[in-house]
Design a binder for these strands. Sequence first.
DNA 1: CACTAAATCGGAGGCGCCTCCGTTTATTAC
DNA 2: GTAATAAACGGAGGCGCCTCCGATTTAGTG
Lengths: 206, 206
Amino acid sequence: MVTEPSAIAEQKAQAAEAKPLRVDAQRNRDRLVEVAASVFAERGIDASLEEIARQAGVGIGTLYRHFPTREHLVEVVYRREVEALCAAAGELAEKHPSDVALEQWMQRFVDYIATKRGLATSLRILLNTNSTLFSDTSGRVSQALRQLVEAAVADGTIRGDVDASDVLHALSGIYSAPDTPEWRDRSRRLVKLLMDGLRFGAVKAR
Amino acid sequence: MVTEPSAIAEQKAQAAEAKPLRVDAQRNRDRLVEVAASVFAERGIDASLEEIARQAGVGIGTLYRHFPTREHLVEVVYRREVEALCAAAGELAEKHPSDVALEQWMQRFVDYIATKRGLATSLRILLNTNSTLFSDTSGRVSQALRQLVEAAVADGTIRGDVDASDVLHALSGIYSAPDTPEWRDRSRRLVKLLMDGLRFGAVKAR
DNA sequence: CACTAAATCGGAGGCGCCTCCGTTTATTAC
DNA sequence: GTAATAAACGGAGGCGCCTCCGATTTAGTG
């Protein structure tokens, strides 16, 4: 990666790579990603690419120029979603006391995973194939979590004898639980339980 | 599985399940599996199913009736090949001294894996998805190997302080080696090396 | 503004997937 | 052998994938 003079407030990270896309091209690309996110969420990862192009109001050729394979498109959508999830950490931290921020972020994490459950197989394949994707995103997620946990530990709203990796470990247990209908509710309860445990013995009583 | 009165010399195992297929149907089915094996080997696991039907001289509809999805077809082909590999163990054991039989079988195992290397990703996915397939076939393979190893230990052509699982372990190392151009040759040499080790200290000197 | 080169668009076309159903064939009963 | 019936055949058709390239649009220049 080349050193960027001012990478401030770059709306979309991909916009800054190499050449600044022509405005119509950028517009179409953004549109495609947005539509793809909703179509994938709705119809699954095997949704018709022609359908996506149609909904985005572009020709199929345009879709393929921007995203040579289905996987390219899926990857961009996935990265964007992970990015949004991680960005939420910062926002929550500003608006809420740090323990509440942590709890809400974990709930959001659960919700996010819930939408991905159906796609699990395909996603796992993608993550196996493209290991950069895996390390990038999991790094990003654990960084967001660390930020929240450390803040909460620092101001005493949760106990001090845990760190981010403990919490991540707890969350990964949730992820790997079998995919039953009650999964989501159970996971939400588990997050609450986890938070109660974290708050117990905190410096500041509630 | 219902008790079978006489399951003797059933040419193809699948022929015995439930209803005895009409002869034309059985003929077409066998033909399809045979052609599929060669086409998959040649063009990879994503080969055109219409091509397979064409080469087998049947309509695409016939292929789909017998094998509702690509995976069904791949699975049958794969099982058939593993079966052939394991059957070879018995034949080799009859024709050769037991240490030679073991060596030749391992070489054949290497050859077999070699043809599957290119398909590794897709196959791994299939084996993950269909865990029965995995346990069935790996069980079958290790059984064949055990038969050979035990015979060779019993008649003293290889040393007595190893068992089948040791040898399988050694072979699995071969499998997981990176997929370089020299893979096959190196693996063949490794098998020879392994055999030398096994023969060393055998009761009967060569 | 007009003009041009470069970038982008978009859909026709060729191929494969899979389903559906009218036609053909094997089997059974007589 | 013939008729009846169940089973199997096979290809047309609709859809999606992906490529290719002529038409269109943009950004830059005078």
